[in-house]
Simulated scan of single mutants.
Amino acid sequence: MNEVTVRRARIGDVDDLVELRTEMFRSMGSATGGERWRANAFDWFVDRLDDADYGIFAVEHDGVIKACAMGAVRDAAPSPLSPNGRDVLISNICTAPDARGQGFGGRAFDAVMDWARQTGIARVELMATHSGRGIYERSGFTANAFPAMRARL
């Protein structure tokens, strides 16, 4: 059949979104254990599927979700590069291990970028893994001189 559909995620996709998020962390070498975060992630996705400030996309191949991507409008103080103070954070770009190298992740990324453009917001940001840098750079992303830093509270 080989039918590929790129669409907004639906309630029936949430288990797959959580599993792909787990795979994203696994492929980054991060810990993936614990059911609490997965249950919280499930509820988080459910709560945001129909929220206009979130664009959550799924790529389905022959009825199976193979990739996803997500965008979220963030509120921030205005700045020279973002005069209206809002930007879009792209995240959760992941492809199932058995589907990598077939363009599914690129299709999910394209869908979320199209959604981001439709918001009318002028700036988009993402955190790139080494394996994802190429596709992002081809889409106009550049490394920031001030990379993200984190601390646990």
Rank of each mutant, 00 (worst) to 15 (best):
G132V: 09
A128E: 02
Q118D: 15
W37H: 04
E23N: 05
G101S: 06
V59T: 06
R117W: 03
L126Q: 09
G71C: 05
G134H: 09
G85E: 03
G134D: 11
P147T: 13
R36H: 14
R138L: 01
R150A: 15
L89A: 09
A128T: 08
T129N: 02
M70P: 00
H130C: 06
I90C: 00
A96K: 05
I121P: 01
I56P: 00
S82I: 10
R150D: 05
A108C: 03
D51G: 01
N40H: 09
C94L: 02
R150W: 13
R21W: 07
F57H: 11
R26A: 14
Y54Q: 01
R123S: 04
T119V: 05
F146T: 15
M24Q: 14
G101V: 08
M28T: 11
G34M: 11
P80A: 11
Y54S: 05
G103H: 04
L49E: 02
A99M: 07
L20R: 07
V18E: 08
G85V: 04
F25L: 15
D110G: 05
G34H: 08
V46M: 08
R48T: 08
P80M: 06
D75V: 06
P147D: 13
G105P: 05
A77K: 09
A111S: 03
V18N: 10
A58T: 07
G106I: 05
G132N: 07
S91E: 11
L89E: 05
G132H: 12
I65Q: 03
R38V: 04
M127S: 13
R100C: 10
V124H: 04
T119K: 01
L126I: 12
I90T: 00
D114W: 05
E35V: 00
D114P: 04
A122N: 14
E35W: 05
S27W: 04
Y136V: 11
A143C: 06
P97S: 07
S91T: 15
M127V: 15
L81E: 12
V112D: 06
M28W: 10
S139A: 15
G120A: 05
F42P: 00
I135Y: 01
I65D: 00
F45W: 03
